[in-house]
Design a protein around this nucleic acid. Structure first.
Lengths: 157, 157, 157, 157
DNA sequence: TTTT
DNA sequence: TTTT
């Protein structure tokens, strides 16, 4: 359920390698810095460029895949939502941060060799998923297919 | 996993009440006819209108909610993907049909009283979900929260 | 031209009446506060809600229409892009602000009576446009139709 | 103005070189065949693939750029709307066709060498625009910057 | 600060 | 066939 739509679609390039951390429960939390540039001409015909640097967070399996396959410079498609956070800095001042919480990720432009940090893995390239998470103590191969997000094999495909 | 993005976002009004059918396994398959109109001015300054009539399909729980709460005239937000189908008509001729397969639905503009056909129900208004399906023989209330699409309670929310 | 895609789609409700200002050149700059709420269940089955408050900016004619027709509580569709701005506060500290720059707006759910502040106007209800601006000293009715964003009357419509 | 939203976002690969035609007034009309593939696992754990072939139309300058820079196999981002058309075939039977009318295009994944058919040109790579058209008898360099879709140089960029 |  |  939701009251409202909060949707972000980005296509950009990574400014740096992904940063992967893990929660206490073992869930991956990966952060990307993603650049999107727009260009316009001003009144004098001069070209102006402006780049936005997005902070993108990916959780669980999606975060693991991002950490394994993405690296600096790589072009990527991200779909997610905007989250505005407020926290108090060490100086007692309020700080604000805006993040894009990804629920879909897709590497663009071929390539797709693995990053240095990538361990040997069984997963397919370019995979994306919604939710799913690390779920400690529950092996992925025990997952019933229906949990993959397909309501029913009866759905025409 | 996917190779490519196929995403549709519609905001429109229903031309008719939803049509709900069920598969043999008991999954709801609901069809909507949704109008989106665009307007432009031609060279002579005359206003031209053009309406597209989209055929939207919703499966499983999402289809049930659509059948219960939507009705003719209602404004709705749909997110999904395009599917092109080919089949052979009774005259042996090839027929083509284009459908929008919804994976998100949201009623707009308040109102939201239930349709005539709606049985007494426990579900919240305006709910949307991805996949999930009817899953006969498995009561919704037995579902673990993690299956609702949230990877981990550790994710800041 | 652009290098990358930076796209935001919002459906939400206004937390307050629009705030309209004008640049020295007479262009409207309208700010909206837009709420989108998402809901999930935590591990214990309790419902959690989280609301994001978006700061949306609309320029030119689009800003004027927003100022005339929108008001507190109204549901609206916004399409635009994210812009991150940094400025220095009066205390010399860096401040950050995130805004959604709208290039499409559409009022939802009927209603659409004009706000108190709305002057008598000739424009249609629910209009949306991209760019276009106030362009002081240039009457809108002198605009050639082709500038409305339609490349050619030859395009089938 | 519009009553409703009809938006399509595609990321896919061209199944063939673009097909470029011109209207009598000299406007380019380019057609692309674009593949998007989705993958799911069925109940038995077998991987199923399904590919949709989209028919994308680009008009005016956007069509010219597509014709010059795109070719078979190239990955591309398309944003546009769905249009359903009905016409009568030579056998007197009704025929239906669904097209995506592009208003934004962006080449993905670097590369971007020009197609064989590309004439020498002055335009930047990866450009995208909305409307604008060929406008015979009107040199592009005579265009006022404001027509490029930016309402006012006063808008912070 | 909105909305259901 | 919807809607404003």
């Amino acid at each position: 359920m939701a009251r409202g739509i909060n949707k972000v679609i980005l296509v950009g390039n990574l400014g740096d390698d992904p940063e992967v951390k893990y929660t206490q429960s073992g869930m991956a939390v990966t952060t990307l810095r993603l650049a999107t540039t727009s260009v316009r001409k001003d009144r004098d015909g001069n070209t102006q460029e402006r780049t936005e640097w997005h902070r993108v967070k990916l959780f669980g399996k999606l975060g693991e895949i991002a950490g394994e396959y993405l690296k600096k410079g790589r072009q990527v498609y991200i779909e997610g939502s905007i989250r505005y956070d407020k926290f108090t800095g060490q100086d007692g001042q309020d700080r604000y941060i805006t993040e894009i919480i990804a629920d879909e990720m897709q590497m663009l432009g071929g390539g797709g060799e693995r990053s240095e940090r990538a361990a040997g893995g069984e997963r397919g390239y370019g995979s994306s998923q919604r939710g799913g998470g690390a779920q400690p103590g529950r092996a992925p191969q025990q997952k019933a297919p229906v949990e993959e997000g397909f309501p029913d094999d009866d759905i025409p495909f």
